[in-house]
Amino acid sequence: MDKTIHLLIKKPEALDREVRIIVTSMFPDFDLSRYETALADVGRYFAGEQPGFRACDTPYHDWSHTLGVLLATARLMHGVHADRQEFSQRTVDLALVAALFHDSGYLCRENEEGPGARFTRDHVRRSIDLLEEYARSRGWPMEDFMDMECMIQCTDPARSPDAIVFPNFEVMLASHSLGTGDILAQMADDVYLEKLPLLFMEFSEAGITDFSSEYDLFLKTLGFYSLMRSKMRNKLSNVVASMGTHFRIRHGVERDFYSEAAVRNMDYLAELLNNLGEEYASGLRRRLDRDEHPIILAA
């Protein structure tokens, strides 16, 4: 009999359900109230339903990306909790909220000129600022906010994790889980290559000139993947090694499907560039609005 494992769950209700299953398997009495409130509120931010904010207009760093990072982070923390370091309920709770806010800095307030992509360079700082504003409105302890600030800082591509001061080892591992989840959720996406033109569009709107063309971004993505793989292993405590533990406990198969999917994407990208060159786009055939392509395993 075949078993279907959904790597990237793209229906919000199903993804929320999976996150709940994961955290309550770690802590049967887990208090989901803060997570539930933040999930609903951040969803409204991205939808433009929160007073003073416009809907998200960044096509790459959108609500779907945020939810993908949320799930990858929960899965990683589950694996780390099982085979390396037991987390407290509080730290898991804070990491879920930090994942929800980690790219909220792309959102535009009503009095700001868009598009949101123009905030690419400082979106991490803006995300932290919005989280602080939100935490104060909810009456959360400052200590909670400061721990979540560390977690979000680990998603900053321009900042080395070595430069972040963590209050303790547990928060560091949670932060590294979020930083790793941010990388994996993107590069393992079954439409990652199809979404790269959207990323180039955001870079162009931000005035980032690291890539001379969309083709140049595709060419440099292979090198970027190598850098991210090294970063996950050497700068983010190699928490990526615990992803297989999560899938073993949750699904009975000890494999890191995220890393495997990322490698498949890179292999196909190399094939496209080698065979088609600047006509690479003709080999991108997956629709951005498609459902996830499930991984089928022999049970």
Rank of each mutant, 00 (worst) to 15 (best):
D162G: 15
A74S: 14
H81T: 01
S226N: 11
D103I: 00
T73R: 01
E133K: 15
A117T: 03
E202N: 00
A158H: 13
H102E: 02
Q89R: 13
L107E: 00
R20C: 14
A38S: 15
E254M: 02
E260L: 13
Y192W: 09
R159V: 11
A74G: 04
L184V: 09
V69F: 03
Y134A: 12
A47Y: 08
S175V: 08
I128R: 08
Y258P: 05
R90A: 15
E271P: 06
L288M: 04
A298V: 10
R20Y: 15
T37C: 11
G68E: 00
L15N: 13
E214F: 02
V42E: 07
R121W: 12
E110F: 07
Y215H: 14
R290E: 09
D41K: 09
L193A: 04
I208A: 10
F218K: 05
R17H: 11
F53T: 07
E110G: 10
F257E: 01
F203G: 01
R34L: 14
M77A: 01
W63K: 04
L227H: 09
V92P: 03
A47D: 09
H246G: 00
D147E: 13
L173K: 09
R90S: 15
R121M: 12
A158Q: 12
V171M: 08
H65T: 00
I21S: 10
R287P: 09
D122Q: 11
M228D: 08
T155Y: 02
M228R: 10
I128F: 02
Y280K: 09
C154G: 07
I164Q: 02
D93E: 15
H61M: 00
A262R: 06
R285M: 06
W63T: 01
T24F: 09
G139S: 09
I9E: 11
N274D: 12
Y215F: 15
G48Y: 01
M266L: 06
D93I: 07
N234E: 13
D210T: 14
E36A: 11
D2A: 13
A163C: 10
Q89M: 14
T221E: 02
Q89G: 14
N265A: 04
H251E: 12
I249L: 15
E143H: 11
V171K: 06
K235T: 11
S237G: 05
A241P: 06
V240E: 13
L219I: 15
L276E: 12
R126P: 02
R118C: 03
D147A: 13
T91G: 04
W140S: 09
Q85L: 15
T24K: 11
M1V: 13
A206G: 01
Y45T: 09
S25Y: 07
A241E: 12
D147M: 10
T73C: 03
F218I: 03
D210P: 04
K195T: 03
I296R: 13
L222N: 08
E49H: 11
F224L: 13
F203H: 05
R75C: 02
Y225G: 08
A14N: 11
R286S: 10
A241T: 08
N168W: 08
F87V: 09
P28C: 06
F101K: 04
E194H: 01
